[in-house]
Amino acid sequence: DPGLRGFTDVDIWTREGDLGKAQDILRENGFSPLDGHPLLFHRGGVWVDLHSDLVGTGRVRSRGFGVKLDHDAVWNDARPLMMEGYEVLSLSAVDRLLFLCLHAFKHSFWRLIWTVDIAETVRKHRIDWDALIRRARDFGLERPVYYGLLCAKELLGAPVPEEALLLLSVRRGYVERKLSDLAISGLGTDGLSEALYLFSIPKVSQKLRFLWEVVFLRPEVRPQVDPKGGPLFYPRRLFRAGKLALEMARRAT
């Protein structure tokens, strides 16, 4: 029963050109956008989050470095699904698994339910592993998929073929292995995904730009993360980065 799966909002993916239409439909049905977050709508206790980019470059533009996401290909492979008498489009099994891995990765695996989503998708669907690996390579998402599958396999015993992990060809150095151990141990730490994501970015200049944008958010983005605008926002972010570094150092000894 999908209703048993708890969630805080409903994510709806739409084409970039249809965002305005989607916003109008929500307003016509009594939803209001959250201040500082024009794509997050609410009506009472119901929240709807609109997306046009599945990677999340709207908040951190440099997250797109190294990613070659083809939204049209994902749309073309979407499957019709009946929901409450309405036909809607849903991601194919391969794309669903890929983006569940990306979602958990982006949020540092700090909620176990996101890893459960990955494990249950593997268990309940016949995954075309060759297609998944091709998709991950084509989109430049080998690491998010690798870590999502690895966590599901190690933490929850998901039947992920070892060959699939090997074919993703993620070569981890010492530092990356220590970082990934935090996720695999179930100790998702704030900032972990950004640290791991650095290994997917090809150029040093791009890595530095990514780090800068993650720490010092653009003015139009900060209200989404820090709606009160408190003076301790950046000290807290630096403190969390230091906490992650200390945890890595502790595990290295």
Results as ranks from 00 to 15, higher is better:
E142A: 10
L132H: 04
K203W: 15
Y146H: 09
A183Q: 02
E120I: 01
I133Y: 07
E213D: 08
P202V: 07
L167I: 07
E220S: 12
R135P: 07
R171A: 14
Y174M: 11
L166S: 14
E163R: 13
L182Y: 07
R143A: 03
V160D: 00
S90E: 13
R123F: 03
R123D: 03
F210K: 00
I201E: 00
E176M: 15
D190P: 07
V215S: 07
L141C: 02
G140T: 09
V225Y: 15
L150E: 09
A131R: 14
E176N: 10
I113T: 09
R177W: 09
L182F: 10
A104C: 06
L198F: 07
C151W: 05
S180F: 10
P223K: 05
L211Y: 05
L155G: 03
W129Q: 05
A93H: 13
E163F: 10
L187K: 13
P219F: 05
V122K: 03
S108E: 02
D190W: 12
T189G: 01
Q206M: 01
V215G: 04
L166I: 11
W129K: 08
I133N: 08
S193R: 05
P144C: 04
E213Y: 06
R123K: 05
T115D: 00
L112N: 08
F99T: 07
S90M: 12
H107P: 02
L141I: 02
V214A: 10
L150Q: 07
R135K: 12
R222L: 14
Y174T: 11
P223G: 00
D190V: 12
A136P: 00
W129N: 03
L167Y: 09
L155F: 03
L165F: 10
F139K: 04
T189C: 07
E142S: 11
F109I: 01
E194S: 13
P144T: 02
H107V: 09
H107C: 09
K106I: 06
S185H: 11
V214H: 09
W114D: 14
W129D: 03
S92R: 09
E154S: 12
A136V: 04
R172E: 14
I113C: 06
I184K: 14
A104K: 03
H107R: 14
K106G: 00
P80E: 06
P161D: 06
D138G: 08
K124M: 10
P223W: 06
S205P: 04
L155Q: 15
L192I: 07
R123P: 02
D117H: 10
C101S: 02
R143W: 00
L97R: 13
G148Q: 01
T121E: 15
L141Q: 01
D128H: 05
K106Y: 06
R218V: 09
Q224K: 15
D138T: 11
L102S: 08
V215H: 06
I118S: 05
R126W: 14
L211G: 04
R134E: 13
P161H: 06
W110A: 11
E84V: 10
L168D: 04
W212Q: 12
W110E: 11
L211R: 03
A136S: 06
A131Q: 13
T121A: 15
R222E: 14
Q206V: 00
S185L: 13
P219W: 07
T115W: 01
R209N: 12
R137K: 15
P223L: 06
L187V: 12
Y146R: 04
F105P: 00
R135L: 12
